Amino acid sequence: MQTLHPEIKPYARHELAVEAPHVLYVDESGSPGGLPVLFVHGGPGGGCDALSRRFFDPNLYRIITFDQRGCGRSTPHASLENNTTAHLIADMQRIREYLGIDKWVLFGGSWGSTLSLAYAQAYPENVHALILRGIFLCRPQELSWFYQEGASRLFPDYWQDFIAPIPPEERGDLMQAYYKRLTGTDQIAQMYAAKAWSCWEGRTATLRPSHDVVEHFADIHRALAMARIECHYFVNQSFLEPNQLLRDVHKIAHLPGIIVHGRYDVICPLENAWQLHEAWPGSELQIIREAGHSATEPGICDALVRAANDIAHRLLDLSPEDA
């Protein structure tokens, strides 16, 4: 079983101004001359942390992490202004150009898989390969499953806590009801809704209950950005055309990709990964037994570290012992 690489600190940090009012936090770690990889975090609204760098061998990779608009260390916090999928794709291009990178590997989980696919389909010439986890295609049936009816049947106890901020008469459209509160002027109602929204995700993210994962999602600073930005994206169909990511998969058919997905992923069901793999000739699908959605679960973590080593081996033409 592969484990995460040791914790490392960035060798460079950047504050990159993009379209007002946003300033992005970007950092670089690992080897300055290594294979560039962009860690694309989830949410939207999740942000990066020290764990984000540890899936990659720092001797082989130039590791770039960034906090998307409105979250993590980017500013302003939890802002929805000028915050769409097209803006985030443009930000990734801006980062690539700012850092002088021709091509990079994209590494994204959950919403990070969504954004990585959308970017790669827009700019396939700038992508070496993709490593994706917990595939989220942002289709209406996926959002309905997790935020209206479906996952609720597997976790009825957690579901009661999720719907608690919403009066019974508004529960026919929970995303719109949450959006009203998360964008309203009542700060107490906003915080209550944000924590309930984020904790629902944290409590269902792992196959086995994880106190650390739940606490991560329950942090109110993080929860506010995640809940507001996720809800903003989801009520707007993630600013994607219907079935866009599967429809346009032919644009990346030539690119290699490794898809890692937990068999018991409740947040993003395995069907998503299966359908993407079926449509993408260059992809390899690894279904992880005894795992849910979280990248921190042992089987998922093992597969992701191995995938990063495998991609480095292929692209840098290393011997198995070196990779």
Rank of each mutant, 00 (worst) to 15 (best):
E125N: 06
H22R: 03
L318E: 02
D102A: 11
G100I: 13
G282Q: 04
P140C: 07
F56C: 05
P256T: 00
G42L: 05
S144E: 15
R13S: 12
V105C: 10
Y25H: 14
E97V: 15
H128K: 06
A273K: 06
E297L: 02
H87K: 10
E170H: 12
D212I: 11
Y11R: 10
I8Y: 08
V260Q: 03
V18H: 01
Q68W: 06
K180S: 13
H14E: 07
R289H: 14
M175A: 13
H221Q: 13
Y25F: 15
I64F: 06
E81Q: 13
A194Y: 01
D173W: 04
L132A: 05
S283K: 10
L80C: 12
I220D: 00
V26Q: 03
L318D: 03
A129Y: 03
G33T: 04
T183Q: 05
G33H: 10
F39N: 09
G47D: 10
A291I: 11
Q187S: 15
I63K: 01
N309E: 15
R222G: 01
W104H: 10
P44D: 10
D265V: 09
I101W: 03
D265K: 09
V260G: 06
G262C: 06
E297P: 04
F146R: 09
Q141H: 14
M1A: 13
G46N: 02
Q160F: 00
L174Q: 01
M175D: 08
C138L: 05
G150R: 08
P281M: 01
A295M: 14
V214E: 06
C71S: 02
R247N: 13
L255Y: 07
I101V: 14
I220P: 02
C268E: 09
D265N: 03
V105W: 05
L174I: 15
I101P: 08
A164H: 06
W111D: 01
K195F: 00
D248W: 01
Y61W: 09
P298T: 02
L315W: 09
L80R: 13
N309W: 10
H261G: 03
I252C: 04
